[in-house]
């Protein structure tokens, strides 16, 4: 699994926003907003092939969370990213 090319995470004033920079026109009416833990997972896996376990590992390394919960969170986030078309 990987994050599609052309998407960048921009952090502005504690807001983590994914912007489709690969296109000439950027549609800000469809920006994706990430919370802090989702942004952490994004940064851990962006630009490379990854698995849900890689994302969960990033979570357990940063937060005091058990592996099962981290896996469930990572799975949910990946499903959302795939659904909105930023990961494949």
């Amino acid at each position: 699994m990987k994050i599609k090319e052309g998407f960048e995470l921009r952090t502005l004033c504690d807001e983590h926003i994914i912007v489709g920079c690969g296109r000439k026109n950027i549609d800000f009416s469809k920006v994706v907003n990430l919370n802090e833990s989702a942004a952490l997972m994004w940064n851990a896996v962006v630009g490379k092939e990854f698995t849900v376990a890689d994302m969960a590992a990033a979570l357990t390394a940063e937060y005091d969370v058990d592996e099962k919960t981290a896996l469930a969170d990572a799975q949910r986030i990946v499903a959302e990213w795939v659904e909105i078309g930023i990961a494949e």
Binding site: V19, C21, R23, N25, I26, D27, F28, S29
Partner: peptide
């Protein structure tokens, strides 16, 4: 962010 992206040469669609 919209301002920055326009400066970079993009066009931007906003509500």
């Amino acid at each position: 962010l919209v301002r920055d992206m326009i400066r970079e040469g993009h066009t931007a669609t906003i509500w």
